[in-house]
């Protein structure tokens, strides 16, 4: 167990340090890179919990896709750091106020948190038994049987979001020449090429 706890402290310390670096870095691209390191360590913590499926999905979805888009956008933006710093003192009271409110709320939630007695029993007896099947399979069984409607609803929400973003960004620009591969393939020699015998000294009118 020593190795597991050493690994836990390693992952969590790096996760906290890199999360702090996300907000303290001056350069936004460096911030995103630190964010990626944070995701990695969170995935490491998942592995320690025995939730290898969640760990891999975290890496695939957040690090492999979401953070790439983050990085993409942040690199393309022309961010001037001094301009961002300018309003710092002006916004400090508002930001501090929101931060304090959130902190108090978290403290209240944490202080008043108690799990129901039934929940405790459920947690001790996970369905189905982890010793029998791998946790990927267990997760699949629960999601696709017990929670299938909720799961489908989540999928529909994502679909609506996807269609919404496509509708918002789709612009029809007139006068753009685009390659249409089917017309290119369907062109025939008779329609496009004309073989002409050119009389000498006369040319073609």
């Amino acid at each position: 167990m020593i190795v597991a706890s050493l690994a836990f402290y390693l992952f969590s310390v790096i996760a906290v340090v890199s999360a702090l670096n996300v907000i303290f870095q001056r350069n936004p691209v460096h911030s995103v890179l630190w964010l990626i390191l944070t995701f990695f360590n969170a995935a490491g913590l998942f592995v320690l919990l025995g939730a290898e499926f969640l760990a891999m999905i975290l890496v695939v979805v957040y690090v492999g896709a979401v953070a790439v888009l983050f990085l993409f956008v942040v690199m393309m933006l022309d961010i001037n750091i001094t301009v961002i710093r300018e309003g710092f003192m002006k916004y400090l009271p508002v930001g501090a106020f929101i931060g304090v409110v959130l902190l108090v709320e978290l403290a209240l939630v944490f202080g008043g948190w108690a799990s129901a007695p039934q929940a405790e029993a459920l947690r001790l007896a996970p369905t189905p038994d982890i010793a029998q099947i791998s946790n990927t399979e267990a997760l699949g069984r629960i999601i696709y049987t017990q929670y299938v409607y909720v799961f489908q609803a989540a999928g529909l929400v994502l679909l609506v979001a996807m269609i919404g973003s496509i509708v918002l960004t789709l612009r029809r620009r007139p006068g753009v020449r685009k390659q249409d591969i089917s017309t290119q393939v369907n062109r025939r020699k008779e329609d496009t090429v004309e073989v002409v015998k050119v009389p000498v000294g006369k040319g073609i009118a």
């Binding site: 990626i36 999905i57 492999g64 993409f72």
Partner: peptide, 21 residues
């Protein structure tokens, strides 16, 4: 590991970082 194919997928999806960085 049980999720070997996901691990490979994760690693290959990370390959883009070296290039972007």
């Amino acid at each position: 590991i049980n999720v070997g194919i996901l691990y490979l997928f994760a690693v290959s999806s990370l390959g883009v970082y070296g290039i972007v960085m």
